[in-house]
């Protein structure tokens, strides 16, 4: 790890003037420190925002849910309002990482987690790191994408953002020019030749709040892992819907860990919209959601897996 200057700030306002390409905010540090230890990033200054008390809150009101960027995954998981009205988000937070990591990891940092691709985290100067070649594409790719969205086939690794997308959440981002409000669905984008990250935050910007509009009547997050706990998703699904008269309305289905970003399964949503979701319809929705997916050499299993999860999530949401 390269040496750096560490600056403690007391509130979010102090942060913005300090940010630039060579200065990074430090929140829980659970991704920042591993990246720095591996030499993947080497900021000259770390702006420790953890003492910025104005960024750590959960407020539920008429307008929905306001979550300060420094809120930890543990706080999200345990918050009674989140659990009751935004279940998918609480579940996604609860299923992420481990208890200690959830104590440390903030929602803001979670949105910005970099790819967990083993080439990226290893000794390979791959495309996402600024190199020429994606090693995973022709290498080992069992954990990689089944929807091809960029030269990189890494999957977006964080759990809560898929839930946030199903809840149509927005981010409040502050930069030198002031604040902007952007849907999570727009904020997370596949990397491009010029921007080798899985998100669109500018170096001089800070995420200050996540705003979740008033929740639907039901939502669920399902995550498949290759051991019982503490693993990144093999695939995940967040579903939110209003169940009225036994039918599903405003259905939103988001697939996680299958692409550079969480993906809305629009065709599947359309298929079930306003319907009574039978097991058979749930199964078809799964198939529809995966119609455009293409497996790489080592991840064929993700097609049945993600189909199964979509169907299961729809069945679960109908069951209430």
């Amino acid at each position: 790890m390269q040496p750096f200057i560490h600056i403690d700030v007391a509130n979010s306002e102090e942060v913005i003037p300090l940010l630039d390409a060579r200065s990074r905010p430090l929140a829980g540090g659970t991704d920042m420190l591993p990246l720095m230890k591996e030499g993947i990033v080497a900021p000259e200054r770390l702006i420790n925002i953890k003492r910025a008390g104005d960024l750590r809150y959960i407020r539920a009101d008429e307008d929905g849910l306001h979550i300060g960027a420094l809120t930890t995954l543990d706080e999200l998981d345990r918050h009674p309002d989140v659990r009751r009205d935004y279940t998918t988000l609480a579940q996604a937070a609860a299923e992420a990482a481990s208890p200690q990591l959830r104590n440390m990891a903030t929602l803001g940092g979670n949105l910005l987690q970099q790819a967990r691709c083993w080439y990226y985290r290893g000794d390979f100067h791959c495309w996402l790191k600024g190199g020429e070649l994606c090693h995973a594409r022709d290498g080992r790719n069992e954990y990689h994408a089944i929807f091809d969205q960029s030269p990189c086939v890494a999957v977006y690794p964080s759990d809560p953002p898929a839930a946030l997308m199903a809840l149509e959440a927005n981010l409040r981002i502050v930069g030198p020019q002031g604040a902007r409000l952007v849907p999570v669905a727009e904020f997370l984008q596949p990397p491009s030749a010029e921007r080798r990250t899985l998100h669109t935050l500018a170096p001089n910007e800070l995420i200050v709040e996540v705003h979740v509009p008033k929740g639907p009547s039901g939502s669920v997050y399902l995550k498949a892992m290759d051991r019982a706990t503490w693993a990144y998703a093999l695939a995940s699904v967040a579903v939110a819907a209003n169940i009225r008269d036994g039918r599903a309305h405003n259905v939103r289905i988001v697939l996680g860990a299958v692409s550079n970003r969480p993906i809305r399964a629009l065709a599947a949503e359309e298929l079930v919209e306003g319907q009574l979701i039978t097991p058979e319809l749930a199964r078809r929705a799964g198939e529809t959601a995966l119609a455009a997916a293409r497996a790489l050499e080592h991840n064929h299993y993700k097609l049945p897996l993600t189909r199964n999860l979509v169907a299961q999530a729809l069945r679960d949401i109908m069951a209430g």
């Binding site: 069992e142 498949a224 892992m225 290759d226 093999l234 080592h298 991840n299 064929h300 299993y301 049945p304 897996l305 199964n308």
Partner: peptide, 11 residues
């Protein structure tokens, strides 16, 4: 016997 192998066997 990982989920990928189980799912492929079931498939």
């Amino acid at each position: 016997i990982t989920p990928p192998r189980v799912l492929e066997a079931l498939d």
